[in-house]
Design a protein around this nucleic acid. Structure first.
Lengths: 149, 149
DNA sequence: TAGCGATATTTGATATAAACAATATTTCAA
DNA sequence: TTGAAATATTGTTTATATCAAATATCGCTA
């Protein structure tokens, strides 16, 4: 098949996937009584022991001031701790609380669960090719985004 | 490989892809002097000759009142026309203007171009499997989203 | 055919999400 | 040790989105 035609199909696919993935995120956040921003923020912690405000802001592509408020919410809900970094008192050390760690674990589990369900609808022999192909797609996309201008 | 492990990789992949695709949308909208909402709205027109406010709102998962405002912007920028539907005067017939059609064509072209560039970084024999796999993924995702509760 | 309920859109009020600007604290280098 | 840069926060403003009320129209029925 013509590459251009393939590109067109791929364009439509990523467009639809994007919409559906967003919907999925909204749904999951809702279930756990979190705003979308809080949900994304917690997800971004991953296994990182300790991060500061600015790093999180950069990863989420939000302003530091916005992050302060999102973290305010998560602190109030007792999912994370925020304390002054003793090494550099300008930084705030943001870490998951016990409750937070539990939730993240649970979220990851649910997240994997969904994708596991999704995989069940796809022939097993197709799993590996799917992953590989999508890894390539992600790589290429990142490369495109890093292009100047 | 274990399905669960595959699911975990897939979960991380879609998470990263989502973030990057969003970034890409932001970038493209910016280039054309449109807000993200306006950009998405124009993209959703596709080749549809004429749609009404409510249909667009449903497709974009936004309230009709929000749509009125987004369309206000697009009308002001002269990308679309809005006129009373003669068949049912409660409806507004929203159609692309000449300028709008041109932009949508251009957008689609750019959109396909990006994905074409992306495909160039992926081995040609992998193109078809990628598409097929992603189609399955989308299908499965839609199915998951339609699940009650 | 007059009137009632349903539907589509718009407008105004409001809530939420985000950025920007100014400030306070701290670090670090000249 | 003083001034510039970095970090987080707070107050202000803008953008995004919803909800409720108002308006216009339609379709039905008594």
């Amino acid at each position: 098949m013509d590459t251009n035609q393939t590109a067109e199909r791929l364009a439509n696919l990523t467009f639809s996937l994007l919409a559906n993935c967003q919907e999925k995120e909204v749904r999951l956040a809702e279930v756990h009584g979190l705003t979308q921003a809080e949900f994304r923020c917690l997800r971004l912690f991953g296994t990182d022991e300790s991060v500061n405000n600015k790093q999180i802001a950069e990863r989420m592509a939000l302003s530091p001031s916005r992050l302060t408020r999102i973290i305010d919410g998560l602190v109030k809900k007792e999912y994370i701790n925020r304390e002054i970094d003793p090494n550099d008192r300008r930084n705030m050390r943001v870490t998951l609380s016990k409750k937070g760690k539990l939730l993240v674990q649970q979220l990851n589990k649910a997240y994997v669960g969904i994708h596991s369900e999704i995989l069940q609808d796809i022939e097993k022999s197709q799993h590996e090719p799917l992953i590989i192909a999508m890894e390539h797609l992600l790589e290429a996309l990142e490369k495109w985004l890093q292009k100047p201008e």
